[in-house]
Design a protein around this nucleic acid. Structure first.
Lengths: 239, 239
DNA sequence: CTGTTCATTATGTCTATACATAACAACAAG
DNA sequence: CTTGTTGTTATGTATAGACATAATGAACAG
């Protein structure tokens, strides 16, 4: 008859996580000290310490002595799939990064849009397509759909200084994501990439949610021979 | 002048991890109880508990009350890149899984083999190519190189009951891995997949080490339209 | 004004203790 | 032989207290 027993330190962890995920404590916020949290939840500091250590291990907060713990900026991609920060990727490789917006349309979600965003009902959406260039050579085509129901402020965003992906990371506090990687053949819709028809390309689709609400769906196309997704890891995090 | 201070619980964690990674405690081993370890390292049980909790969080061990903690079977692939357990994948989808070995050769590593395995010096290698089938329809071509210097017992393995990938997981205690995903075009070497030339394919390369020693390099080719790599995750592990 | 020292503060680590809980085993009752 | 009870064991959770350590800033000496 008793409710399922959830350990205190997990409940505290969940409570803090909720404040971060909801945006109540945006990135950069200094969260209360261990002693304060211990008083809030009426428990020992060690218990709070466990909760915070846990959150730090999962990368939601960063801990520093004396200055306290702060909410970390979300790293939307896992380390394994982090080629999506195109600007950083390109600049790390020593090229200059540039991108252009090819199309930008606001419309009521079509049947296909609902499918892409996994929307139950049609809502207004912003449809974008962009071309990413490294040293002025096209290397990635982006096809994006943003739900204006979830991110109404996208309607007025110009995306001049920031690509839609980077902008969204700053606007939507945190999210879950689903990736899909496949291989496709270059066709006329990818003319901007200046590829011979039939060139194999890597297609990466990502669907993002914030609190169960669809936020965005993006499809990135790379020429398969020029770029590759590299992931390196060990089973343990190393001591 | 004092040596850099490494916390006790980390040192204990590292010591246990070393026994697991070295193969001294192979998967399935029941590791000593917290009380025993506390005696061994002359510290409190809570300190050992922290080390073990840490190892469990990283998936190296599994903890069960009463029966104690056991070394887990390594999950060579991260959750994000786990389509490599082809048999499980296929059977989960409701198909029957089968695979055939197309070629099997033992040779001194060629220049290209050294490149693939990142070998400093040529060593004897086992080169395999296999075809994986779902419901008797080919769906993945595997091209594998195994270093016989690292895994001499591969020389006598028949790979009749187990595919080379599954066999290796059981033989090599634990490892680091590097993945590379790209898109390629089907050509004559993939005739076994029965694809039209030029069909875009997903190529997944994986290179595996055990204790700095190259173990295996594998190249998996999937038809890009038929299969896709799906990864789903949230930034936090959920409470 | 500059650099050093030192106290303060918040987190990091560790201990000893206590009780809760899950799993297993052994034994008793049906 | 099956079922239920009970005890043992190992882990799980939580606490209070102690000391270590890093970062910060303020007081202070040059």
């Amino acid at each position: 008859m008793t409710q399922r027993a959830i350990p205190l330190h997990r409940r505290i962890r969940a409570a803090i996580e909720a404040k971060i995920l909801s945006g109540e404590w945006p990135p950069g916020t200094r969260i209360p000290t261990e002693a304060e949290l211990a008083a809030t939840y009426d428990c020992a500091r060690m218990t709070v310490n466990k909760a915070l250590t846990d959150l730090a291990a999962d990368g939601l907060i960063e801990r520093r002595r004396k200055s306290g713990s702060v909410v970390k900026r979300p790293v939307l991609q896992s380390a394994v799939l982090d080629i999506h920060d195109l600007k950083a990727e390109v600049e790390a490789a020593g090229f200059t990064y540039r991108y252009t917006i090819a199309t930008r349309k606001i419309r009521q979600a079509t049947r296909a849009d609902c499918e892409r965003l996994q929307l139950a009902k049609p809502v207004p959406v912003l449809a974008l397509s962009c071309l990413h260039l490294a040293d002025d050579r096209p290397f990635c085509w982006e096809d994006r759909l943003i739900s204006l129901a979830a991110v109404p402020q996208a309607q007025d965003a110009t995306f001049i200084h920031q690509s839609p992906g980077a902008w969204l990371i700053g606007e939507v506090p945190w999210s879950a994501a689903e990736h899909r990687i496949s291989a496709v053949s270059a066709d006329a819709s990818l003319a901007a990439l200046e590829l011979a028809p039939g060139t194999p390309c890597l297609a990466i689709e990502r669907r993002t949610w914030d609190a169960e609400q669809p936020v965005t769906h993006v499809r990135l196309i790379y020429p398969g021979d020029a770029h590759a997704l590299v992931a390196r890891f060990a089973p343990s995090k190393a001591g």
